[in-house]
Simulated scan of single mutants.
Amino acid sequence: MKATQNPPTTEQVTPADLLRMAALYLRRHGWHQGTYYDTSTDTPTPPACAAGAIGIACAGHKVEHFSQLDGGTLADYLATLAAFVDYLDAFHPLFCVDEDGFVIDEHTSPYSWNDDPLCTAELVIAALEDAAKEWDRLHTEGGENR
């Protein structure tokens, strides 16, 4: 190994790490509502919704649908999205209710939450960062994975 090369790391990337990466992506490239990515621009790093930013954090590139991900990346995406949903359920619940007043889905949809007219880029970025902190709080002990 050359002195300028970084040694390989064996550290496991956690959902918290990927949530932070998604938040950083939105800070750098912008937030979007309605679809995973802003299709009005032809750039490899378009503004994204929360789920789109998580997809980019996991895959390293735009992902139009999670079915395009390979096994390991898909597992990371689903675990990270689940951690975000758990956070939203606890701290930003937004439940879809039918015309009779019954809850349609027992979990907050990150897609509906992201697309809510009251949602803002700052709120989404803060939620991703706070979800990462919550994941760390629940899954680490003294900085080490449980």
Score class of each variant (00 low, 15 high):
Met1Trp: 06
Lys2Gly: 15
Ala3Leu: 07
Ala3Asn: 10
Thr4Pro: 04
Gln5Met: 15
Gln5Tyr: 14
Asn6Gly: 11
Pro7His: 08
Pro7Leu: 10
Pro8Arg: 13
Thr10Ile: 14
Thr10Arg: 07
Glu11His: 08
Glu11Pro: 03
Gln12Thr: 14
Thr14Lys: 06
Pro15His: 05
Ala16Met: 05
Asp17Gly: 03
Arg20Ser: 08
Arg20Thr: 09
Arg20Tyr: 05
Ala22Thr: 02
Leu24Glu: 15
Leu24Ile: 04
Tyr25Leu: 00
Leu26Trp: 00
Trp31Phe: 13
Gln33Glu: 07
Gly34Cys: 02
Thr35Gln: 11
Thr35Pro: 03
Thr35Phe: 12
Tyr36Cys: 08
Thr39Arg: 13
Thr39His: 11
Thr39Ser: 08
Ser40Leu: 08
Ser40Thr: 14
Ser40Glu: 14
Asp42Leu: 09
Thr43Trp: 02
Thr45Pro: 00
Pro47Ser: 15
Pro47Leu: 02
Ala50Lys: 01
Gly52Tyr: 02
Ala53Asn: 00
Ile54Thr: 01
Gly55Asp: 03
Ala57Pro: 03
Cys58Met: 02
Cys58Glu: 02
Gly60Arg: 05
His61Lys: 06
Lys62Val: 11
His65Glu: 13
Ser67Asn: 12
Asp70Tyr: 09
Gly71Cys: 09
Gly71Glu: 08
Leu74Asn: 07
Tyr77Gln: 01
Tyr77Phe: 15
Ala79Cys: 13
Thr80Val: 12
Leu81Asn: 06
Leu81Tyr: 15
Phe84Leu: 12
Tyr87Ile: 04
Tyr87Lys: 02
Leu88Glu: 02
Leu88Pro: 03
Ala90Met: 06
Phe91Asp: 13
His92Phe: 10
Pro93Ala: 06
Pro93His: 03
Pro93Met: 04
Cys96Tyr: 11
Cys96Ala: 15
Cys96Val: 15
Val97Thr: 15
Asp98Met: 04
Asp98Pro: 09
Glu99Thr: 08
Glu99Ala: 13
Asp100Val: 10
Val103Glu: 11
Ile104Gly: 03
Asp105Pro: 07
Asp105His: 11
Asp105Thr: 15
Glu106Trp: 09
Glu106Ile: 10
Glu106Cys: 09
His107Ile: 05
Pro110Lys: 03
Pro110His: 09
Tyr111Phe: 12
Ser112Lys: 06
Ser112Thr: 08
Trp113Glu: 02
Asn114Ile: 02
Asp115Gln: 02
Asp116Cys: 15
Asp116Thr: 08
Leu118Ile: 05
Thr120Ala: 03
Thr120Gly: 05
Glu122Cys: 01
Glu122Pro: 03
Glu122Lys: 07
Val124Phe: 02
Val124Asn: 00
Ile125Ala: 00
Ala127Trp: 01
Glu129Pro: 04
Ala131Ile: 03
Ala131Leu: 00
Ala132Glu: 01
Lys133Phe: 04
Glu134Cys: 08
Glu134Gly: 03
Trp135Asp: 05
Trp135Cys: 06
Asp136Leu: 14
Asp136Lys: 07
Asp136Tyr: 04
Arg137His: 13
Arg137Leu: 12
Leu138Arg: 11
Leu138Met: 15
Thr140Ser: 07
Glu141Gln: 14
Gly142Asn: 12
Asn145Trp: 14
Arg146Gly: 12
Arg146Trp: 12
Arg146Lys: 15
